[in-house]
Design a protein around this nucleic acid. Structure first.
Lengths: 200, 200
DNA sequence: CGACACATGTAACACGTTACATGATTTG
DNA sequence: CAAATCATGTAACGTGTTACATGTGTCG
């Protein structure tokens, strides 16, 4: 929903055409989130379908302008006034992967964690370099550095969690967490074929 | 890609049928990520389409078993051996929203931050309660608490970033970050209709 | 019996994302 | 002129997600 809501929010400032919307989005979010132009037109059509924007004719240069509607403005207000709806537990591929690696007999959970942690640290270093060389002057500066900070905070948390996970895994006696398939689960009868331990 | 890869990884341990896969996924990831059963069958068909699993007949109870193929096993190995592919800057709706709120003349960025922070703290409190009442005994205990820790680390980072953002916003003179539409951008000629400042 | 969990499956949708086609205009 | 940018658009795909239909088995 981020792209959709963002475009809508920008349109709340006044009519724009496609390329302009992309420019505004990139400019305001610090150029860290590139946006394929095609997606703009795509999203605009979906917003139109939902009655949140309408086509607003074209100017002398042929630019097709889009205008926000009343329901669209209401949607923007709602977006800004209420916190984003998040599930209590957003799915995180890395966390899922570690949890599975830790319970799969055939996997080396420690190695998986190390690999992910190295990747996280690499991203972190790159983000910090970007952050350091970021020019904070100009009206866009603060927003830009805030976005970078957000990414850095998040990457730091991931790396720290992985370190924590690595430690706790090491403490665990003989990696005794590998789980075979739970063949006894079905209430109404056990499958004929027992859970064979393929792979390793 | 998380669900897809997870099911594949579980199937690497041996053939399973749909409901069993769901059970295994939920069991290994600490029941924090519920999985609609329909999605299992959906995903299995897509995996079959890609040649990573194949149907493996049914047992006496009518359970339809699925078996991983060679390419499927290779895919699992790859997933476990290499870090998850992540863009340097994953899109985060909250970060995008704050960046936009900070640059939109009509928005009260401070209020938006406060609202998001309250929500983040709420989630955090709930996660900590879950974590505290989590039974760590049993083979699944460690994986479960690690997953919860992941969510907690992540929620903490978000809250801390929001606090940081709030502070930096406060330091900023007269909220001077509101950006009007960048009407001078188009290189080939200025649109006839100037960027009007609608909304506030 | 009736409610509920088990079990399989289908169909549709949402959003994000990319590849491609097409043309005008600017610039080296 | 040729290349690059600006600009609009279309078509397709991928994953995640939900709603629904259908039937069997269990249990109070």
């Amino acid at each position: 929903m981020s792209v959709r809501q963002s475009l809508l929010a920008i349109l709340a400032q006044g009519p724009c055409y496609g390329y302009q919307l992309r420019h505004e989005f990139v400019r305001r979010t610090g150029s860290v989130w590139p946006l394929n132009v095609g997606q703009i037109y795509n999203t605009l059509e979906r917003l139109e379908r939902d009655g949140l924007v309408r086509r607003d004719g074209a100017d002398a240069q042929g630019h097709v302008y889009w205008e926000i509607t009343s329901p669209g403005l209401a949607e923007v207000d709602l977006w800004l006034s209420r916190a984003v709806e998040r599930t209590l537990a957003p799915r995180d591929e890395v966390a899922i992967k570690i949890a599975l690696a830790a319970t799969l007999p055939g996997a080396d959970a420690a190695a998986v964690i190390d690999e992910e942690r190295a990747a996280a640290e690499g991203r972190l270093a790159e983000l910090r370099m970007m952050r350091a060389s970021r020019d904070e002057a100009g009206p866009e500066g603060l927003a830009h550095s805030l976005v970078l900070d957000s990414l850095i905070f998040s990457a730091e948390a991931e790396s720290q969690w992985l370190e924590h996970a690595r430690t706790r895994l090491g403490e665990h006696p003989d990696h005794g967490l590998a789980l075979a398939l739970d063949v006894d689960r079905p209430k109404r009868g056990r499958p004929a074929r027992a859970g064979s331990a393929a792979l390793v």
